[in-house]
């Protein structure tokens, strides 16, 4: 038991003195990094601008209210596009994510040395690049519009879905797979009878979960020209049409909340 001497008496403490020092040291270094980071942000900020923040907020809020309700009729098309990007994007990404997940899972990959690293590379590279960046890239390739957004969302979601799916594949009950193997089933039959039924709930959960996220992401893709309601937001922002901006933000908020509600309901029903 770690103790130290105090006035000739042994006093209990949680950790050994050395371990305690290392802990304090780590905290200190962490704090120093944070203070340094904060100072950098502070140095790059024009603080005198902050004096009238209250006025700016009040000014914008004043301009933005009431929202331009009549404008809502023109938002039907953009909302439809946004929903199409999210739904079709999720669908296409799942089609691509399933084979990648089977190639990446340790228990189903044909080769751990050659195939698995490639599958993992696809997962990490599509996942670590934000959908807006994918959209930027695709706008320059296929031109501005819904198509760029759709492809961006599809690619971006591959990594996310494939990662969760291959983790689910690795967690399946191996005895059920063994039982199918023991009947003399072929490799593909083992997959269809032993593995697929086991990962079906995970697959459905991942699909709705990603659909929910994709609705959020597709609302802003228009900012870089990739279609959907973000496009309307961008053009309203450009001309400082605040009543329209506030209406669009409200519509986006409602869409996101509905998306989350639907996804939670569906996931609840599956599990």
């Amino acid at each position: 038991m770690p103790t130290h001497e105090k006035n000739g008496l042994k006093v209990w403490q949680v950790r050994e003195t050395k371990a305690q020092l290392i802990r304090w040291g780590a905290w200190l270094i962490g704090l120093a990094i944070f203070i340094f980071a904060w100072k950098e942000i502070s140095d790059n900020t024009l603080w005198f601008m902050m004096d009238n923040v209250g006025e700016v907020v009040a000014d914008i809020a004043g301009r933005a209210t009431p929202p331009a309700w009549s404008f809502i009729l023109e938002l039907g098309g953009p909302i439809w596009d946004t929903l199409a990007i999210a739904t079709l994007g999720t669908f296409f990404s799942l089609i691509m994510a399933v084979p990648v997940a089977f190639l990446a899972a340790r228990n189903t990959t044909p080769s751990r040395v050659f195939v698995r690293p490639i599958a993992l590379l696809i997962i990490v590279s599509t996942r670590s690049v934000n959908s807006l960046i994918w959209a930027l890239l695709l706008v320059s390739i296929v031109g501005p519009g819904v198509l760029a957004g759709l492809i961006a969302i599809s690619i971006r979601s591959i990594g996310f879905c494939a990662k969760l799916l291959y983790e689910a594949i690795e967690e399946i009950n191996v005895v059920q797979v063994e039982a199918i193997k023991a009947t003399g089933a072929s490799r593909m039959q083992v997959m269809v009878y032993g593995i697929v039924p086991q990962i079906m709930p995970a697959f459905a959960g991942i699909a709705v979960f990603r659909w929910d996220i994709n609705i959020r992401e597709s609302t802003v893709l228009g900012l870089v020209g990739a279609g959907g309601i973000g496009l309307a937001l961008q053009s309203s922002l450009n001309v400082l049409a605040w009543p329209k901006v506030s209406l669009i933000l409200l519509v986006i908020l409602v869409a996101v909340v509905i998306g989350e509600w639907v996804s939670a309901k569906v996931r609840g029903a599956i599990i």
Binding site: N173, V175, Q176, E178, A179, I180, K181, A182, T183, G184, A185, S186, Y193, G194, P197, Q198, M200, P201
Partner: peptide
Amino acid sequence: RKARRKMGMIFQEYALVERL
């Protein structure tokens, strides 16, 4: 695979595919 067809196996935890 052909030989396995001639050997039936029964498991401790039943090993049924539970969702089928």
